[in-house]
Design a binder for these strands. Sequence first.
DNA 1: CAACGCCTATCTGTCACTTGGTAGGTTGGT
DNA 2: ACCAACCTACCAAGTGACAGATAGGCGTTG
Lengths: 187, 187
Amino acid sequence: MSSSSREAILAAARRTAQAHGYGGLNFRELAEDVGIKAASIHYHFPSKADLGAAVARRYWEDTAAGLEAMLAETSDPTDCLRQYPGIFRKALENDNRICLCSFMAAEYDGLPEAVKNEVQTFADVNVAWLSRVLSAAAVVSSEESEGRARAIFAAIIGAQLIARSRSDISLYDAVVDSYRAAGLLPA
Amino acid sequence: MSSSSREAILAAARRTAQAHGYGGLNFRELAEDVGIKAASIHYHFPSKADLGAAVARRYWEDTAAGLEAMLAETSDPTDCLRQYPGIFRKALENDNRICLCSFMAAEYDGLPEAVKNEVQTFADVNVAWLSRVLSAAAVVSSEESEGRARAIFAAIIGAQLIARSRSDISLYDAVVDSYRAAGLLPA
DNA sequence: CAACGCCTATCTGTCACTTGGTAGGTTGGT
DNA sequence: ACCAACCTACCAAGTGACAGATAGGCGTTG
């Protein structure tokens, strides 16, 4: 149990940051969620920047693991592409939250360097996975797959943002369907 | 000149909010930018919420005027669709800023009600304009035009976010080109 | 005079972070 | 077996910086 508080802090911080961003993280509220005192968080994470970087890192690690798991379970790469938007849908289902790293991309200018790096890695993980799957599904040529992968990733986080600003998850579904109809994603 | 300070405050607040969001707005810094004292801002905008709403309102008003102007100058609706991404490119050109309302869409949960409304109106203005132009260009059927309009709007702000998180405007261009190649936007 | 535009001064609250502890568990030398 | 040294995990109290907001006053202009 050496790190149960640490894990609880990471989980609570992730939840908060998906709703209010890095700037919306604060030690008091976090501590209350976890059931310890604010000062104690500094034991596990010396500074807010350390906490932010740890949260973002854990976030992309979990995402990467989820993507690999999907690939292992779903043999057809085109099916993987069909399921991909569902991953980002979950954030919206969870009280209208959004992807942690989308929020942090908006906040990018004011972010500590260590956090910026993790945010970029999240994008890299998604683009690399999409690129691989697009190639496997032969949706585009392998030279174009990274560009298309980035476009899909960008479009998905845009859709998330739109849906959030209306607190309406059906908007996300509608936009994703439009992407499919337009040919950005396989139908 | 009854409102030269008021206008200066709005302009400075817009610049700041495009870089650091509604949460990043603060009276002291704003006052320094404008050359007055922080307390004086409250004369023009009683509360921060009032200021935020005024900034967001002015933002969509300016955007709406720009879109109408483009439509007046460019007779071909398909050309308008080709130029549309350029509007959002300008924010990135301006020190890696993004659309005010994209940022505020991320911050949505913590926004005062009056600000939320203006943010939604910005989206409405864009979707309505795109929908009109898509219909005129006969890119999609008129029943589908609003859905496609929303998809384009979402995709564009997603592209902006991606480019910002790398401070790399060429990423925006590449993603927009991918949208065109995929058929989301006319080539 | 009176409204306007801005000022000084101050209030109250919240933020991240620091200091200086305590209680309990583990370890290692004798 | 014993005890001292150390480590882990936490807390109470407080610091200075900064946030939005307010009250009341001062000079200019119509």
